[in-house]
Amino acid sequence: MATDRQRHEALAHDKQSAVQAREASQVEFDHLQRQIEELETVRAELEHKLKELTNTIQEQRRQRDAASEELNNLQRQLTQRRSRLEVLQQILEKGEGLELGTQNILKGLDDPDRIKGGIRGLVASAIEVEPQFISAIEAALRDHLQAIVLNHTSLADEVLQKLTDQRLGKAAVIPQDLMLRNGGTERQFMPNGGVAWALDKVKSQPHVQPLVEHVLRNVLIVDDLQTAMRLKRDHPDLAFVTLKGEVLTEHGVLHGGAGKEEAASTLRRETELRELRVQVEALDIQVVEKEMLIEDLRMALEEQQREEPTPVMPPR
């Protein structure tokens, strides 16, 4: 009986030990399972973050490459515009396309420092015209465009005398003190068929405004010469100029036609020069802004690459 009892107690003890071992194993298993689940969650989060960072880096690289290409295009445009601007400035400074006498006066003749100090500039350099009306305004102003505005009559007399004595060519000059300001321009209603009053299409600097107002005060821009001749019968006091540059004067004289080689337009050069200066200034700003953007993208890209996590291996 004792032996049976001992065996029974041993079996009970073994059973209890087995139960405890199984419970311990279950606890350990549950603990390991939770760790696995936590690691799986961490891995999923890191993989999601890695994917987001990878997409962000790719997008920033795309933006950087696109910005670099845009910068190259802007720099190319800027180089072209700046080169054209420099050439145009040299052409205007040399007075290419102007009368020989006009060129010599602009250079200062035999006393450049003193004479240049008394020159206000060409009339063409002191007015602005909308591009589509340049031919018309050039025709209406004619030789006045190449006239040189001087500070005083004494200088005008001197430079013209030197041109004559030294046979240095002819020129038109306008002494500032002889340019009387008009009392005002009386504007009549625009006749049916007119495009615009010539004076409305010119923006003048103050020192040439009296001249421009006087020359253009009764000039009407029209589409073509047929319209000009039709309107002239009812408006004999007006002069007409077409968009192509044909002129019908107050006195009924018609000016038109074209040569095989037309001289370069001073007014068009001046207009192009102003436009180029604006374009170069705008391109300069755009280049600086694009360079700053590329630098910001480069720094952001480096920062993202430093934060890029190492992929997590799945638990075994």
Rank of each mutant, 00 (worst) to 15 (best):
L74F: 05
G169K: 05
E138A: 01
V312F: 02
I36F: 13
K244W: 02
V87Q: 15
H48C: 13
R181G: 13
E59R: 15
G108T: 09
R316L: 14
D113L: 08
A258Y: 11
E86V: 12
N104S: 13
S17Q: 12
V253C: 08
F189V: 15
V202S: 03
M229N: 15
V287A: 01
R120W: 12
Q226L: 12
L276G: 00
M179V: 12
L273P: 00
V247H: 00
H8R: 12
V219Y: 03
R298F: 07
I36P: 06
L53P: 08
Q60K: 14
P191L: 07
K162Q: 11
E28H: 07
Q33W: 09
T41Y: 10
R181I: 14
S25A: 12
T41W: 09
H214P: 01
K162F: 04
D296H: 08
L46T: 11
V27S: 06
D224H: 02
S68P: 01
I174N: 03
Q304H: 12
K244V: 07
D224M: 04
Q161A: 11
V202R: 01
N182I: 14
P191V: 04
R142I: 09
E138L: 02
V123R: 05
I294C: 02
G194R: 04
E303C: 02
N218H: 12
H152Q: 14
R142H: 10
Q103K: 06
R61G: 13
A140M: 04
R81A: 15
E93N: 01
K116Y: 11
I134L: 13
E128A: 14
Q161G: 09
D234C: 08
D111E: 15
V215E: 01
R34Y: 00
R114Q: 14
A258K: 13
A67Y: 08
I119D: 01
F189T: 14
L238S: 02
Q305K: 12
M292Y: 08
R84C: 01
P206D: 05
V195Y: 00
V208D: 00
R230Y: 11
E307K: 04
D165P: 04
A198F: 00
E70I: 05
K203G: 03
N151Y: 05
E308K: 15
T242I: 06
Q205A: 13
L145S: 07
L211M: 11
K260L: 15
R22S: 09
A18T: 08
L301K: 02
Q16E: 11
A264D: 14
E47G: 08
